[in-house]
Design a protein around this nucleic acid. Structure first.
Lengths: 151, 151
DNA sequence: CATGAAAGTAAGACAAC
DNA sequence: GTTGTCTTACTTTCATG
């Protein structure tokens, strides 16, 4: 499956404003509204578009402390173990298994430093976690799109 | 500015599906459609909601290689220098200055390993960059919301 | 915050290229 | 296979109470 230029421009338009009308997007890319909708529907079926979401300002919502936790896990910990263990934390914004020294990198949003510390301690106490190393975000410089990719 | 329970539930509903109708959301939270719209408008004015975007599957769009670059910068590099330097790269999905050894943490999406390597080399060659350390994502386990925060 | 009317938008069926 | 036009139903929006 490959996206042609038209699909890319539609996704790009939706990335900037997911509530734009199909007619509006169509005017930009040179299609009628139904044609745009059909392509969006197809992109959803293909799994290229997984949904629409709101872009929020963490700080404005009271999540003023952001950080990353590098997790070092015990032997025989599966990615699925980590996923199950972390999905219970609403403070976990993202998590991936990674190459390098650590086993996983976990992005955290907390209301303040005290909250961050509590989350860190609870995660460090998970049975599959051997040790952790964490860094705090000083300034969020750049953030694009939901899942991160440049479209 | 603080969000009450109603606002939170509206943001949560939009986070799950930003194209839901106001009437639909209203039925869930117990408000009429105009009432929901007014709150959303107010949240946008306040900056709590910064926009609506599409949630895409990077892999389905051809961005199959994800990684993080820890940047060690030269002295006297400002966050603004980093922002200016990195915003030119479409492959940069997110970037933050952080505590710890590295100065900044940069999230990258590339089409493949070769592409990732090229981006890494170009970023490492930026005048404000002293050295880099990079990790590759093996499995993206969890991803929530646009800007990352739990709502 | 709800109601109701007007304007705008979505979605499906259809024909045409 | 994809597109554009049309029609219907729904949603949004703004005025008013």
């Amino acid at each position: 499956m490959s996206l042609n230029d038209l699909d890319e421009r539609i996704v790009h338009a939706l990335a900037e404003d997911a509530r734009r009308t199909y007619a509006d997007i169509g005017a930009e890319v040179g299609l009628s509204a139904p044609a745009v909708k059909r392509r969006v529907d197809r992109l959803r079926e293909q799994g290229a578009i997984t949904g629409f979401t709101v872009r929020v300002d963490p700080a404005a919502l009271g999540w003023k402390t952001e950080g990353f936790i590098e997790m070092y896990c015990r032997s025989h910990t599966t990615p699925d173990d980590i996923h199950r263990g972390l999905s219970r934390y609403p403070e976990v914004a993202a998590a991936s298994t990674v190459t390098g020294d650590a086993d996983a990198l976990v992005q955290i949003f907390a209301s303040d430093m005290r909250h961050f510390e509590q989350v860190l301690e609870r995660i460090a106490g998970e049975p599959f976690v051997e040790r952790t190393k964490s860094v705090l975000v000083l300034s969020p410089l750049l953030r694009r799109y939901t899942a991160g990719p440049p479209v």
